[in-house]
């Protein structure tokens, strides 16, 4: 969760449910999961982080992913969950704290210029939602051109990525080169890794072959013959058939045939006692 935007002097900006215009604080859920902020604290006093506790058990405090929530800094907490017990005219800083009342999630110093009457209805916020500092120094914050309570500070164009790509690469060659480089890189790394792994696993055999390689007969024996190919093909076909019929229950190159039960070999059938005449 991030403090995302604040407005101090509100004369003709957003109104609360009571039709009142007052200072507001926007909090943004920067994560991709729902977050319940019930129990957390908002304060304007570094020496009293527990100044206003957001009530727990309110379904409205469950903030959906990438969504915003507005708190009215009107010093009228009895008006509901989203009305805090201080106002921003007298505040130097806003601090958002976890439910333990100690761990600060985010804080922002309020620029004194924002309290000037010429700055009425101007908001101060993060340039990009959720981006920037969380230690109060205001990195990534600026006076926004327009207020944006409960919505994105910067306009998000959903088609931005494809459009940017169209401008940069109208014929698709850059994408082709870039993407093929990535595909090749991924598979070349796999190739090298498994080449090394295969060396580890084939080393004993190679050494053994190396000692035999002195004789021409041994060299001839290592060459694959037509029979080897036929055998390999038969094994491959058998394996595929057994795989498809779920008969092959062990690893490759080991043929196992799972016995099937029938009335002819069933243990119970075979153990059936023959009728015997009582003596």
């Amino acid at each position: 969760m991030r403090l995302n935007e604040i407005l101090v002097i509100n004369t003709n900006d957003y109104q609360d449910d009571y039709g009142q215009q007052s200072s507001w604080i926007e909090i943004f859920n920067a994560s991709y999961g729902t977050v319940d902020i019930g129990g957390c604290y908002i304060s304007d006093d570094p020496s009293n982080l527990r100044k206003y506790q957001i009530p727990g058990g309110d379904v409205l405090t469950k903030i959906k992913p990438r969504q915003h929530v507005i708190f009215w800094a009107d010093n009228q907490p009895f008006r509901g969950t989203f009305h805090v017990n201080f106002d921003l005219m007298g505040a130097e800083e806003i601090i958002f704290t976890k439910g333990d009342g100690k761990s600060i999630i985010d804080r922002i110093r309020i620029p004194s210029a924002l309290k000037d009457s010429t700055m009425a209805n101007k908001s101060y916020g993060r340039i990009e939602d959720g981006e920037g500092s969380i230690d109060g120094n205001g990195d990534g914050w600026e006076m926004l051109e327009r207020t944006s309570a409960s919505t994105n500070n910067a306009m998000v164009d959903k088609t931005a990525k494809p459009n940017r790509m169209k401008e940069m690469d109208p014929y698709g060659w850059m994408m082709a080169v870039l993407a093929m480089t990535v595909v090749f890189t991924a598979l070349i790394i796999l190739y090298f890794l498994f080449k090394q792994i295969s060396r580890i696993y084939t080393r004993p055999t190679s050494r053994a072959e190396g000692t035999k390689a002195a004789t021409p007969a041994a060299v001839a024996a290592t060459k694959p013959s037509s029979d080897d190919e036929v055998n390999a093909a038969i094994v491959a076909a058998l394996e595929m058939w057994m795989e498809s019929n779920l008969l092959h229950d062990e690893e490759s190159f080991v043929l196992t045939i799972t016995p099937s039960r029938s009335a002819w070999n069933d243990k119970h059938e075979l153990l059936t006692k023959l009728p015997q005449m009582k003596k």
Binding site: A179, M180, V183, F184, A186, I188, Y191, F192, K195
Partner: peptide
């Protein structure tokens, strides 16, 4: 493992 590279090439 060199057969990996053929799988990459076909992605053209």
């Amino acid at each position: 493992p060199k057969l990996f590279l053929i799988g990459a090439a076909a992605q053209f």
